[in-house]
Structure formats: structure tokens, C-alpha cells
């Protein structure tokens, strides 16, 4: 059971992060939060970028844990697969949420 968790954790976190940031964007546009300004920046961009960086950070911690002596699996096969899915989670987070930092919001 713990081995299954090791394999599934990183993609699960990706899915949670992906849905949350998509939801955050929906919330910002749905409630007119894009109009709020902090200094010269409008509120949504820093908020979205912060969430994006947080998601990447969490994935890096998970990946680190999968390599650490403390948390890694005893089975060589599970070690390999969990690290591969760990990398998948990290890359998927960086890749699929990149628009949070780059494209325009609410249009």
C-alpha cells in the first residue's frame, strides 16, 4: 500500500495543483478580482505566480523524498517507477501551469 502511494503521490499532487490553480483563475475572473491593484501590479498575476511556484516547490520536495534514504521504497522496481512518476509530476506542474505566469487572464 505504501508502495502504491509512493508511485501515485506526485501525479496526484499535480492534479490537485492543476485543478486548484484553474479554479483560482476562475474565481479571480468570476468575482471581478482582476480589478484590484497592488501598486503598479494588478492582484491576479502575483497570486497566480505564487501559487505556481508553490506547486513546483511541493513537487521538488516530493521528488527529493523519493530519492532520500528515509522515504524510498525497498523494492528497486518501485524506486524506479516512483521516481519516474515523481519526475512526471514535476515536469507536468512546470509545463501545464506555465500559462499562469505568461498568458493574459480573464479575456
Amino acid at each position: 500500500m505504501k508502495d502504491l502511494l509512493r508511485i501515485l503521490i506526485a501525479p496526484l499532487i499535480w492534479f490537485v495543483a492543476f485543478s486548484s490553480i484553474y479554479g483560482l483563475h476562475g474565481l479571480i475572473c468570476g468575482h471581478g478580482l482582476q480589478a484590484i491593484q497592488i501598486g503598479s501590479l494588478s492582484l491576479p498575476r502575483p497570486l497566480l505566480v505564487a501559487a505556481y511556484l508553490l506547486a513546483i516547490g511541493v513537487q521538488m520536495v516530493v521528488l527529493g523524498a523519493l530519492y532520500s534514504a528515509q522515504f524510498r521504497s525497498r523494492s528497486g522496481f518501485v524506486r524506479f517507477v516512483s521516481r519516474a512518476t515523481g519526475w512526471t509530476g514535476l515536469v507536468a506542474t512546470i509545463w501545464s501551469l506555465l500559462p499562469a505566469a505568461t498568458t493574459s487572464y480573464c479575456v
Binding site: 492543476f18 490553480i21 484553474y22 483563475h25 476562475g26 475572473c29 515536469v91 507536468a92 509545463w95 501545464s96 501551469l97 506555465l98 500559462p99 499562469a100 505568461t102 498568458t103 493574459s104 487572464y105 480573464c106 479575456v107
Partner: peptide
């Protein structure tokens, strides 16, 4: 909105 589409476009290419 385009950012919403862009998330899914990115995931779809990935």
C-alpha cells in the same frame, strides 16, 4: 478565458 484554455492546451500537448 484564454489562460484557462492555455492550461488545458499545455496539458493536452504534454
Amino acid at each position: 478565458p484564454h489562460m484557462g484554455l492555455a492550461f488545458f492546451s499545455a496539458a493536452s500537448t504534454l
